[in-house]
Structure formats: C-alpha cells, structure tokens
Amino acid sequence: MSHACTLQVNGISYPLELDAGRTLLTVLRGELGLTGAKEGCDDSECGACMVLVDGRPVNSCSYLALQADGREITTVEGLAKGGELHPLQAAFLDEGGVQCGFCTPGMLISAEALLRRNPNPSEDEVRLALGGNLCRCTGYQKIARAVLAAAPGANA
C-alpha cells in the first residue's frame, strides 16, 4: 500500500507516494536524484547517509521516509548557496579533509549540525559530534581541523 506524503528537501517540496518500509535514503537517492548522501553500511554504523531533519542529524539509511513527512530536510546539496561553497566545504578543501570523498557529505552534515548548536566548539566537542561518522582515508585529523577552522566563533 502506498502512502501520500510531502518531503521538504533543501527548500523544495516533493509530493510523493511511498511504501511504508522505504527509508529516507533510498527516496532521496532514488526518487529525488539527490545522490550526495551515501549508502555505506545501510544500518546506522558509518554516518555516510547523514542528513538534517528539522536541523538535527539523522542516519537516513535507517529512518522511515514517511516519518519525515512535512519536515525540513537538508542534504549536502543544500549547503552551498548561490554557487558559493558553504564555509565548511571550503574549510574541508583548504585543510585537506577530503580524500576519496565518500564520507564527506555525512561529515559535513554532522559538522553543520554541531555548528548550528555550538558556533565555537572545542576539538573534543568536534570529535564527539563526528563520532558517528567513519572515514577510511583521512585519519580524521584534517577533518577535525577543518571543522574548527569553519566554526563561526573560531576567529572571535
């Protein structure tokens, strides 16, 4: 049985008909063509699928799409504005926080969730906020440095 719902993604409304068991990740990637969020483990271990739902980080591989009906969803595609990289994206490039890039969308989303709540985090706070995101390439040092560099409070 399919169910009508509306997903609000990066400011755009998408009316959809979805089966009960569909995860948010498969809908974002399949129906909506937003392939920024990745499927790494598909069971809440790696964080590659991270998106914001009402500003909070959610593992979209393990979240029912219908539970996000009507809520504000942000994927990595929603971070850059008007062709300008988001400060976190720029910092990841500057600091060398991207290698293969598979974990990067999830890292950026978890970091964005942190900075919205805490504009001036300590390195410990950054590492805890990224605790649910695995990277197999960078060793995390450069990622942590990038988040600290992008923090609005960093130069205050």
Binding site: G21, Y63, L64
Partner: peptide
C-alpha cells in the same frame, strides 16, 4: 526507529506489516 528499523536493515527481522508511528 533506531531499534525497530535498524533491526530490519541488519536483516535481524522484517518490518512488521502495520506500523503505528508515534514520533
């Protein structure tokens, strides 16, 4: 859903036929 849905992703069980979402 972090137990219920994740359990189905891990293949431990299938999703129940009827879900009552209370979130």
């Amino acid at each position: 859903g972090t137990d219920l849905v994740v359990g189905t992703r891990q293949g431990k069980r299938t999703l129940p036929e009827t879900l009552v979402a209370i979130h």
